[in-house]
């Protein structure tokens, strides 16, 4: 699956992002406004391209179908969002998509929290014991080459037979597990690099203070890993969302945006706009997850140099 490959690369290349951050609140606001402007321009250009392809496709034969049933007009999509989901139902398509996206976001967040906790613990163990790093890291990397499509039914199959006392495994947990499985990797690799980041001088300083291993971790290694942790968290959050949507599709769990896309895709001939609204819902879900991590990032790095490193 190509997803895991991109995740791997991004996790490995994640470098401290201090240099990119700008200074004063005023400058930050200006940059924010500028990027919002560029985003609007991008949306506008996409709309124009879409309609252009449709217009040209209606006169010149194209290698793909540009008819209204597969590529509805942008305006049709917008109005389609506000039509009832089914004949006679009181909820609109947009409402249904928002509900489903919210449900998926909850699952993704659950998977993210589990994945990040596991990833962090793995990184700490690997940093602390060199033999763990040598023994474990190859498995951590190999874990991401297992195709998710093959893994999903397996996890569902195992999980369905799993119950401890009053706790019953449901397929929703399988989805969460898969999200966690994708999310832990970028974090553990990024955190491991971050924990290794302190300079030799800082480490000697702590040793000269006879700092205990726990003090070394909390007073030096954790704080210096933050510039590595933040990009890793972003990739993990994106992975958790992608993992959730894909796992929903391959396990057929109801209620989430993944299943909704499948259901709406079947209705493409009747209401072609619906599936596109659902796809946009999935995209916005990813953006919301990224925004949440960015907010956390601003909080974590509030005390670090805003201009490049000294």
């Amino acid at each position: 699956m190509s997803q895991s490959v991109t995740v791997t690369k991004a996790g490995m290349d994640a470098a401290p992002g201090r240099t990119a951050r700008s200074g004063s609140a005023g400058r930050r606001f200006k940059r924010g406004a500028a990027s919002a402007g560029w985003a609007l321009l991008g949306i506008l250009l996409s709309v124009i391209m879409w309609e252009l392809v449709k217009a040209v496709g209606s006169v010149v034969p194209f290698p793909f179908n540009t008819s209204d049933t597969t590529m509805p007009n942008v305006w049709t999509m917008v109005t389609g969002a506000f039509q009832p989901e089914m004949r006679g139902s009181s909820t609109t398509v947009l409402q249904a998509v928002i509900m489903a996206a919210g449900y998926s976001l909850m699952i993704a967040m659950g998977g993210f929290v589990v994945g990040v906790s596991v990833g962090l613990m793995l990184a700490i163990t690997m940093q602390r014991f060199a033999f763990m790093e040598r023994g474990l890291l190859p498995f951590v990397i190999a874990s991401q080459t297992v195709p998710l499509i093959a893994l999903a039914p397996l996890i569902v199959g195992i999980g369905n037979r799993f119950s401890v006392g009053p706790f019953e495994w449901s397929t929703t947990y399988s989805v969460m597990f898969i999200a966690a499985y994708l999310a832990f990797f970028p974090l553990s690799v990024g955190a491991l690099r971050g924990l290794h980041a302190p300079t030799a001088t800082s480490l000697e300083l702590m040793r000269s203070y006879a700092a205990k291993p726990r003090q070394l971790l909390f007073k030096l290694r954790f704080p210096s890993s933050i510039p590595y942790l933040v990009p890793a968290l972003k990739v993990s959050a994106a992975s958790a969302v992608v993992g959730t949507v894909i796992a929903e599709i391959s396990t057929g769990v109801r209620g989430g945006i993944g299943r909704l896309i499948i259901e709406y895709a079947r209705e493409i001939t009747g209401q072609p706009a619906k599936v596109y609204v659902a796809v946009f819902g999935a995209i916005i879900l990813g953006l919301v997850a990224a925004a949440l991590v960015t907010a956390f990032d601003l909080y974590l790095t509030r005390n670090l140099p805003k201009e490049g490193p000294a």
């Binding site: 000697e204 300083l205 030096l220 704080p223 210096s224 005390n303």
Partner: peptide, 11 residues
């Protein structure tokens, strides 16, 4: 101990 790099913690 003091080193050539001040080795102060940024955070």
């Amino acid at each position: 101990m003091a080193f050539q790099q001040a080795a102060l913690f940024d955070w």
